[in-house]
Amino acid sequence: MMRIPCPHCGPRAQSEFIYERTVDSVVPLDAPSQEAMTKLFTRNNPRGVDEEIWRHTYGCRAWMVLTRHRVTNEISECRAIGPEALP
């Protein structure tokens, strides 16, 4: 079980979080059909670092983007997203 550094709550156990999807499989609202389906069904699944969307469901309920090495589970960054994180 990983320890995820929530940008709002600090380091917490993975069991408080729910995984959503990788950042590159987010389907923008205005994506054309072909692009949308590629994002949904053709995933990269790299053996290495990837950006993933998680939610601190059993904590502050905020969403965040984790930069995680998918073999070693090393988390190099965890950044807040959403309206609060807008410039």
């Binding site: 729910i18 959503e20 987010v26 923008p28 609202l29 969307i53 939610r55 469901t57 309920r61 969403w63 997203i81 959403g82 309206p83 994180a85 807008l86």
Partner: peptide
């Protein structure tokens, strides 16, 4: 609830 939150935060933050 998760879906609505995801859409709100990721797809339409503005």
């Amino acid at each position: 609830a998760t879906h609505i939150s995801y859409v709100r935060q990721f797809l339409c933050p503005h």
